[in-house]
Design a protein around this nucleic acid. Structure first.
Lengths: 113, 113
DNA sequence: CGGGATCCCTAATGATACTG
DNA sequence: CAGTATCATTAGGGATCCCG
């Protein structure tokens, strides 16, 4: 299991969906199409810059689609690509693990860690 | 799926095993006990400081065990705790996904991205 | 509304030297 | 061998202003 190839694959995954925001963004897109403003509203802690930036990177990696409606005011919709849908398995496992972890090792009280 | 609780659980996971190194370290521990020097040798890019630091955090989160042999020269062994073994599912899914990704979106040639 | 462009700061990481 | 301790560096991220 822990051989070189296995490790390389994990590192590849980290490069693509690692970081502070990408998986969270994908959580919001997993249920369907979302507008930029919706994403921003549902993630109060992310800045506009970060959101834009991370969306671009996900788009470049073929995970999400960006559809621009040329109208005033502008409207941009984001959604998972067919390939991006494969991320569901990953999200499910991560969510399940985090869920267990919270029960076994509860977060420190009144603290964000 | 993409509800608040789901998202929170994913974020919890990211806090515990997120970052650049922890999952890679766990890859090496998944096959069994490893000494500090072995880990360092098998991860040429990590610095001693980072390795120590990340190991401490994993220990605090109950994922790995640290066994110190009081002898000269010193000997310290790291291994997954029983609870830490639950990380296997996560690693498998991440490795599998990264493996597919490499085939579909091959890394840029002669570049580290 | 959905950005882009700047400036700026800090937390994370690295390099290096030292030690029980 | 398995770490500390310290200093230097950098990348990630935030605040703000501007724009079609």
């Amino acid at each position: 299991m822990g051989d070189q190839r296995f490790k390389d694959s994990v590192e590849t995954t980290l490069k693509v969906i690692g970081g502070k925001w990408k998986l969270v963004i994908l959580c919001h897109l997993i249920d369907g199409v979302r507008r930029f403003g919706e994403l921003k509203r549902d993630m109060p802690h992310i800045t506009q810059k970060m959101l834009t930036q991370q969306l671009r990177e996900l788009e470049l990696d073929g995970i999400i689609d960006r559809k621009v409606y040329t109208q005033v005011p502008p409207k941009v919709e984001y959604s998972l690509t067919e390939y991006g849908l494969t991320i569901k398995d990953v999200l499910n496992v991560l969510s399940k693990w985090g869920d267990q972890h919270q029960q076994i090792i509860p977060p420190l009280p009144a603290d964000d860690r």
